[in-house]
Simulated assay, not measured.
Amino acid sequence: MTHSWGYSKENGPDRWHESYPSARGNNQSPIAILTKNVHSDPILLPWFTGYDPGASKTIKNTGKTCRIAFDDTYDRAVLRAGPLDGIYRLRQIHIHWGSTDDKGSEHVVDLTRHAGEIHLVHWNSKYSNYNDAVRKRDGVAVVALFMKIGKTPKPELKRILEEIDAIKTKGKEVPFSNFDPSILFPQNRAYFTYFGSFTTPPCEECVTWIILKEPIIVSSDQMLKFRSLSSNTAEQPFCPLVDNWRPLQPLNNRMVRTQCE
């Protein structure tokens, strides 16, 4: 039975633990990162992706986010190195955003919260499938990109925004082919990393986070486009899909690491 969770007062993050006990675990995400407390780790490597644009399949309004699905039946679109051992397959990309430009990101760095956060979700291909991987501590790796409001928005976001009108309402899904997610990455690939959880139920603690320090620039108009999505189906009244971000979780003695400069 799937409980209906969401971001409203009735079913929001404060109540997720009632149906999903993991949400009360000791390794939950997102967290606040203070750079003065981040550990410079000489063994951390740069990370690499090899994404086959042909792996992208569909874009969907789930009612909770905008999600792009990828073919993960073999090593077609992969992430490796960085803090990771082995090869991780890209399964999906989804986005978190706010009702206004001053909030929306899930992670916070030095007290700064950005307008949005893009999550690229990968699973460790040494496991038989995604559902098996989420049960393992090293099962999942998520690359997180901050979306920061600025004057020179990233043109590469256009591909995603062009499909928004086709997926206005919950459950709408259209083909989304030939997309290489690496076009979204900023020039600087420096990152923070820590062990945590998914930021949506069931909030399994199986995620190695790779949070890129350099945000990508978006415009207010681009953020408005995300807010034009509805969290209701076509039959229901329009209800703006906004503020789909989870509040900060306790760090609980976890170490946040970064590469030595």
Results as ranks from 00 to 15, higher is better:
Ser19Ile: 01
Met147Asn: 08
Ala55Ile: 02
Gln92Lys: 05
Asn188His: 06
Val143Ser: 07
Gln249Ser: 09
Val256Ala: 13
Pro30Leu: 10
Glu162Cys: 08
His122Leu: 04
Val38Phe: 00
Asp14Trp: 02
Ile95Tyr: 10
Leu157Gly: 07
Ile160Ala: 09
Ile87Gln: 08
Ile183Asp: 08
Ile210Asn: 10
Ile33Phe: 04
Ile211Gln: 15
Glu173Asn: 15
Val140Trp: 01
Gly50Met: 08
Trp209Tyr: 14
Ser231Leu: 13
Leu45His: 12
Gln249Cys: 07
Leu157Tyr: 01
Val174Gly: 08
Cys206Arg: 03
Pro201Leu: 14
Arg113Asp: 02
Thr65Asn: 15
Phe70Asn: 03
Gly12Cys: 05
Ser219Leu: 06
His114Ile: 00
Thr35Cys: 08
Val242Ile: 14
Ala115Cys: 04
Ile31Asn: 12
His119Gln: 15
Gln92Met: 08
Tyr194Trp: 15
Ala144Asp: 08
Gly25Ser: 09
Asp110His: 01
Ile43Lys: 12
Lys154Leu: 12
Asn253Asp: 15
Ala141Asn: 05
Val121Met: 14
Asp138His: 00
Ala141Ser: 12
Leu44Asp: 10
Glu235Gln: 13
Phe198Glu: 10
Leu90Lys: 09
Tyr74Asn: 15
Phe176Val: 05
His17Glu: 10
Cys260Met: 06
Ile95Glu: 09
Ile43Tyr: 11
Phe226Gln: 14
Asn26Gln: 11
Glu204Val: 01
Cys66His: 00
Asp243Ile: 05
Ser40Thr: 01
Pro247His: 08
Trp209Leu: 13
Asp243Cys: 12
Gly98His: 07
Arg91Gly: 11
Phe192Ala: 14
Ala133Ser: 14
Arg254Val: 08
Arg80Cys: 12
Ser22Met: 10
Phe48Ser: 15
Pro53Phe: 09
Pro247Ser: 09
Trp97Ile: 07
Met255Ala: 09
Lys151Val: 07
Pro237His: 04
His96Lys: 13
Pro237Asp: 06
Ser56Cys: 00
Asp71His: 00
Glu162Met: 10
Thr100Trp: 02
Asn232His: 13
Pro250Met: 07
Phe198Met: 11
Ile31Ala: 13
Glu235Tyr: 02
Leu224Pro: 00
Arg67Asn: 05
Phe198His: 14
Ser197Lys: 05
Phe192Thr: 09
Thr258Ile: 04
Lys168His: 08
Tyr20Gly: 09
Trp5Asn: 08
Ile31His: 04
Ala133Ile: 06
Ile211Pro: 06
Ser125Val: 00
Ala77Gly: 08
Gly98Tyr: 02
Tyr130Ser: 10
Ser8Thr: 13
Tyr51Gln: 11
Gln236Thr: 10
